[in-house]
Design a protein around this nucleic acid. Structure first.
Lengths: 225, 225
DNA sequence: TGCAAACTTGCACATAGTGTAAGAGTGTGA
DNA sequence: TCACACTCTTACACTATGTGCAAGTTTGCA
């Protein structure tokens, strides 16, 4: 904010020292949390454990995250924020579903999905998706909603709130559905073939939204199986 | 609440004393929680407050609910469990979306929505939907998924996991969308006209899922506005 | 260099959530 | 009607969570 040095958005990194430190601490925390999740299993470690492993105080942990759950869900947040970023890069006159599909394609990438896949496999044995994880998806839904509203603001009589809400929610649900199916089929498999299947699932899911669920027979299943 | 004289319970339930007591306690807790939410606002009361108001011990509270949030979300749970019950009453050969729509129609009823509407208006000022509330919707989604899978198990080559996951998730999302739009338009208005609008929104939302979101123009908005 | 802002940390404290064992209420068969 | 088993409630103790606060440390900047 009080930064005379220009904000190099597209540039490499945030130059100031403070930001680097904060990012490093944040990373140390999530690394520690993920490590403990690996070694001890979900629910078997405390905030203090994470803080000790990350080399910070318990209090500092809470300066970054509001709970262990939130620290782990930051992985999901990172993934989804990236998705939103991709979505916003799409031309504004492109149909929403095509934009969504394109944004998701960009994320069916080993580097992006790897942390998510590990988190998923590590917490899958746990009853169901953690509260904070659900919240992360809902946060993403809200952002998709915003994007959709911005786009449709141009069209004439279309201040159709229901359409936008339903669209945003359904995009998220279908994205989630594709991921769930993929994980349940492939587990932590990140081979090109597996990622190709993920991409196909995402395409199929978006296609379902485009054409509707009333297609008499489910559209001859996915070619990917 | 330890009242030996039971009152008229209409219905085929097994009215053993223990079950009645438990149900009464449970009700006392949610009533107390809702009352405190009304009087003090979200986040401004503790489990102990609820327990005191309900006339039970703090420990007993935790025998029923795992958090204040969960106690309040039981309202949402009740509503959605009811929806699932309605859904299961539909003939198994009916298309899912029609069943969903019919089940939702049955719940656009003052008695069913009133608690939900109040909870919504009381927590709306709060940042966003509570964790446990999201969990309640997700639980409902899982049940819709189960129903859909049971139904489509009969059809020949349709073990299409993606279709079922996407359908269940989208139904929930669109139901939520309709409710959100309704609440934002009408607030806690439960007049017949308002409920008719809710019904129309639910119908429109399900229609979107049936025909797809690619309808060139949003389908001439809702007739209800 | 020195000041101001931002960040970290230790401490105190209220609250959340759980295990345990004793007590009170409830169902059941003799 | 009583006695016994079962279930639910409660008090207590204890660990963990989350936050306010003030003092200490690091970073930015003139």
């Amino acid at each position: 904010m009080t930064d005379p040095i220009a904000h190099t958005d597209a540039g490499p990194a945030a130059p100031t020292r403070r930001e680097l430190n904060k990012a490093a601490t944040r990373q140390a925390i999530t690394d520690a949390a993920l490590g403990l999740l690996r070694s001890k299993g979900p629910g078997n470690f405390t905030v203090e454990d994470i803080a000790d492993t990350a080399g910070i105080s318990r209090r500092t942990f809470f300066n970054y995250f509001s709970s262990t759950d939130a620290a782990l869900a930051s992985i999901v947040h990172g993934f989804l924020d990236n998705a939103i970023k991709q979505l916003r890069l799409r031309p504004v006159d492109e149909p929403m579903l095509e934009s969504a599909q394109a944004a998701l394609m960009a994320l069916a990438d080993p580097r992006a999905v790897a942390p998510l896949a590990e988190l998923f496999t590590l917490t899958q044995q746990s009853p169901l998706m953690s509260h904070t994880e659900l919240e992360a998806w809902d946060h993403c839904r809200a952002q998709v909603f915003t994007v959709a509203r911005e786009r449709l603001a141009g069209t004439p009589g279309a201040q159709d709130e229901l359409y936008i809400h339903a669209l945003a929610g359904s995009i998220i649900s279908c994205g989630k559905a594709a991921m769930e199916v993929w994980f349940s089929r492939r587990g932590p498999d990140l081979t090109p073939a597996s990622l190709a299947e993920l991409r196909q699932l995402l395409i199929d899911a978006m296609a379902l939204l485009a054409t509707g669920f009333n297609t008499p027979a489910p559209p001859s299943a996915t070619r990917s199986s």
